[in-house]
């Protein structure tokens, strides 16, 4: 197995996901199989090869910092699952 249940649990924590014991087992098996397959990349010598993260050579793209019309506030939070008084509501997360 390329990865263990413990690693799956650790990765799930990083990804903000939670799994049932059966799911963990299935994922450990499936992810191991896929990662094993990807291991073939290790066999290739890439010494001195530049990485390509993006195919077209653009770096920062700037525009004028001008005020333009934007979505009205109500419209922009219309899809929020919980809202009120023009704000998105979330559970309290700061101690007072």
């Amino acid at each position: 197995m390329a990865i263990t249940i413990k690693e799956v649990e650790y990765i799930a924590r990083l990804a903000n996901l939670e799994f049932s014991p059966e799911e963990k087992e299935r994922f450990t098996h499936q992810l191991s199989q896929i990662i094993d397959y990807m291991g073939q990349l290790q066999q290739l010598d890439t010494e001195g090869v530049e990485p390509t993260s993006h195919i077209i050579p653009v770096s920062n793209v700037f525009r004028e910092d001008r005020v333009r019309p934007s979505l009205p506030r109500e419209e922009s939070i219309k899809n929020a699952p919980d809202k009120g008084e023009g704000f998105v509501k979330v559970p309290k997360f700061l101690e007072t």
Binding site: I35, M38, L41, Q42, L44, T46, V49, E50, P51, T52, S53, I55
Partner: peptide, 15 residues
């Protein structure tokens, strides 16, 4: 390094 960066380098070779 072993996976993501490696893949970006192979991407260069594929291109």
């Amino acid at each position: 390094d072993a996976y993501y960066l490696k893949a970006l380098k192979v991407r260069t070779l594929l291109k």
